[in-house]
């Protein structure tokens, strides 16, 4: 049989068109527009301290959004993180105030509780892979919140030592918040692991086709367990910063954080279908939503209306990949293309 050996190209051709047709550019535009808008409402906004203040206003929530990106890339979802924030925060406060543990130990309790909550989600979902993560984490969400309410009832628990408050309020050289530095380190680490390591590649594989991943020898359930546990842990990190910020905790804190974290990630271009998106999009999106909320707050925009804006953005983000530009811009554009 005469056969000419085919040569397969191993280099990806660079295309400007592809380069510019990326969701992140659109996000970046919105991000810049929001900053311009904010700078008109407050003359102090576009200064180092102004921007840092704006950043501090939402950053504690962003920690739990980082592993949420992994969850969505895997095609999973976790809506129990808000309750995990509450339960880990409450148990930290109780350990310190009622059990007399030193604050350092109480903080470790907080992280362990968070990780345990995530681990429980993970164990249920990996032992029974046919269950829907949405429903399981809805269940644990109610469960965790229930435990937090039972422990603290309708009370607040606070009076933490000064150094604990400094976790949120402290600044390097009086300028850069510790929290921001820690966030940057975490965000870079999460991004690099997702895009530059075999672990990240496997997350994308699981999200694209978990069955094929299993047949390719990827320990799918083990990886899911790790990521769910990690998510619980970072919910606890959010709990630490949030509690440090408020100086006390209540069983109802962190309500709605799950939806906010999911919104940040989805707007960033990481689809709930799994297997898609880039981490940089998630980071831009976290800051876009954060600054938008802050800016709208500056002009006393009612918070209910804020939900309309963010909801609208989210719907655009979900629709964007499905829009047929040829149809929208008519046949002229299609012919020109």
């Amino acid at each position: 049989m005469a056969k000419t050996k085919r040569i397969i190209v191993a280099e990806q051709a660079f295309s400007w068109k592809k380069f510019f047709v990326q969701w992140e550019w659109f996000l970046l535009l919105i991000f810049i527009a929001i900053n311009v808008m904010n700078s008109f409402t407050s003359e102090y906004y576009l200064s180092t301290s102004g921007l840092l203040t704006a950043t501090s206003s939402f950053l504690e929530k962003a920690f739990v959004a980082l592993p949420m990106a992994y969850i969505l890339v895997m095609g999973d979802i976790d809506i129990s993180v808000g309750s995990t924030v509450a339960l880990s925060s409450v148990l930290m406060a109780v350990s310190y105030n009622n059990l007399g543990l030193p604050m350092g130990l109480a903080l470790i309790v907080c992280l362990l509780v968070g990780a345990l909550c995530g681990f429980i989600n993970g164990i249920i979902l990996t032992k029974f892979p046919e269950l829907a993560p949405m429903i399981v984490t809805l269940g644990t969400s109610i469960l965790y919140r229930g435990i937090a309410v039972m422990i603290l009832e309708d009370q607040a628990s606070g009076s933490f030592p000064m150094w604990f408050s400094n976790i949120y309020w402290g600044k390097i050289g009086g300028v850069v918040p510790y929290m921001l530095v820690f966030f940057i380190i975490c965000a870079v680490a999460f991004g690099v692991v997702l895009h530059k390591t075999t672990f990240g590649r496997r997350l994308f594989a699981i999200g694209s086709n978990s069955l094929a991943s299993k047949y390719a020898g990827i320990p799918v359930q083990k990886i899911r367990l790790i990521v769910f546990t990690l998510t619980g842990l970072f919910a606890a990190v959010t709990a630490v910063f949030l509690t440090a910020r408020m100086g006390s905790t209540r069983p109802n804190i962190g309500e709605g954080y799950e939806l906010e974290a999911i919104s940040m990630i989805v707007l960033g271009g990481i689809s709930t279908d799994g297997g898609k998106g880039r981490f940089i999009g998630a980071i831009i999106s976290i800051f876009t939503i954060g600054f938008l909320r802050y800016g709208l707050g500056l002009i006393n925009f009612p918070s209910q209306a804020m939900m309309i804006v963010i909801g609208g953005l989210l719907i655009i983000a979900v629709m964007a990949p499905n829009l047929n530009f040829k149809k929208i811009f008519g046949k002229k554009a299609a012919k020109a293309a």
Partner: peptide
């Protein structure tokens, strides 16, 4: 379903 990730490149 079991052999390939269809929306990935062959590489």
């Amino acid at each position: 379903h079991q052999g390939l990730i269809l929306d990935w490149g062959i590489g």
